Deep mutational scan, measured.
Amino acid sequence: ETQAGIKEEIRRQEFLLNSLHRDLQGGIKDLSKEERLWEVQRILTALKRKLR
């Protein structure tokens, strides 16, 4: 995994995270989306740690 590859994956995950946040802010309670949001946040945290 290169730095560029990790950064690209971070961009993808952040896009997905923002999309999930928008969907959930629409007021629709969706447990699967909430679980996915937490999963994406965990992935992002792990990726950012790899960059250090």
Rank of each mutant, 00 (worst) to 15 (best):
E1V: 09
E1I: 10
E1K: 09
T2R: 09
T2Q: 08
T2F: 11
T2K: 09
T2H: 07
T2L: 08
T2M: 09
T2Y: 09
Q3L: 15
Q3Y: 07
Q3C: 15
Q3W: 08
Q3I: 15
A4R: 11
A4C: 14
A4V: 09
A4S: 08
G5H: 12
G5Y: 13
G5S: 12
I6M: 03
I6P: 00
I6Q: 01
I6V: 03
I6H: 01
K7E: 10
K7L: 14
K7R: 14
K7I: 14
K7F: 08
K7T: 05
E8N: 06
E8P: 01
E8F: 02
E8T: 03
E8W: 03
E8H: 04
E9P: 02
E9N: 03
I10W: 01
I10P: 00
I10R: 01
I10F: 01
R11I: 06
R11T: 05
R11D: 03
R11Q: 06
R12M: 06
R12T: 04
R12E: 04
R12H: 05
Q13G: 03
Q13N: 10
Q13P: 02
Q13R: 02
E14F: 04
E14D: 02
E14C: 15
E14I: 12
F15E: 15
F15K: 15
F15T: 14
F15G: 11
F15W: 09
F15H: 15
F15Q: 15
L16E: 07
L16A: 02
L16W: 04
L16M: 03
L16T: 02
L17Y: 11
L17W: 11
L17T: 02
L17K: 04
L17N: 02
L17I: 06
N18T: 08
N18F: 08
N18L: 11
N18M: 13
N18V: 11
N18R: 12
S19H: 05
S19Q: 14
S19D: 08
S19T: 08
S19F: 06
L20E: 00
L20H: 01
L20S: 00
L20K: 00
L20I: 06
L20N: 00
L20T: 01
H21T: 14
H21W: 15
H21V: 15
H21S: 11
R22G: 04
R22H: 09
R22I: 09
R22Y: 06
R22F: 08
D23Q: 11
D23C: 13
D23M: 11
D23F: 12
D23V: 06
L24Q: 03
L24M: 08
L24D: 02
L24V: 04
Q25W: 07
Q25M: 12
G26W: 06
G26D: 10
G26K: 11
G26N: 13
G26L: 12
G27N: 08
G27H: 05
G27C: 05
I28G: 08
I28A: 08
I28W: 04
I28M: 08
K29W: 15
K29A: 10
K29E: 06
K29S: 09
K29L: 10
D30Q: 02
D30H: 04
D30P: 02
D30G: 03
D30A: 02
D30Y: 02
D30N: 04
D30V: 02
L31C: 12
L31S: 12
L31A: 13
L31N: 11
L31E: 12
S32Q: 14
S32K: 12
S32F: 10
S32P: 05
S32C: 12
K33E: 02
K33N: 05
K33R: 08
K33G: 04
K33I: 15
K33V: 13
K33P: 02
E34W: 15
E34M: 15
E35P: 02
E35N: 09
E35C: 14
E35M: 12
E35H: 10
E35I: 09
E35K: 14
E35L: 09
R36K: 11
R36M: 13
R36Q: 13
R36P: 01
R36T: 06
R36D: 05
L37Q: 02
L37R: 03
L37W: 07
L37V: 06
L37G: 01
L37E: 02
W38Q: 13
W38P: 01
W38H: 13
W38F: 11
W38K: 14
E39Q: 07
E39S: 02
E39I: 04
E39V: 05
E39H: 04
E39W: 04
V40P: 00
V40T: 05
Q41F: 11
Q41Y: 13
Q41M: 14
Q41V: 13
Q41T: 10
R42M: 08
R42E: 09
R42T: 05
R42Q: 12
I43M: 06
I43P: 00
I43V: 07
I43Q: 06
I43Y: 10
I43D: 03
L44D: 00
L44H: 00
L44Q: 00
L44T: 01
L44N: 00
T45D: 15
T45Q: 14
T45G: 08
T45I: 13
T45N: 12
T45W: 09
A46M: 10
A46E: 15
A46R: 05
A46T: 05
A46K: 06
L47V: 00
L47Q: 00
L47S: 00
L47N: 01
K48Y: 15
K48F: 08
K48D: 02
K48L: 10
K48C: 04
R49T: 10
R49V: 12
K50D: 03
K50G: 02
K50M: 11
K50W: 04
L51H: 01
L51P: 00
R52P: 03
R52F: 08
R52S: 10
R52D: 10
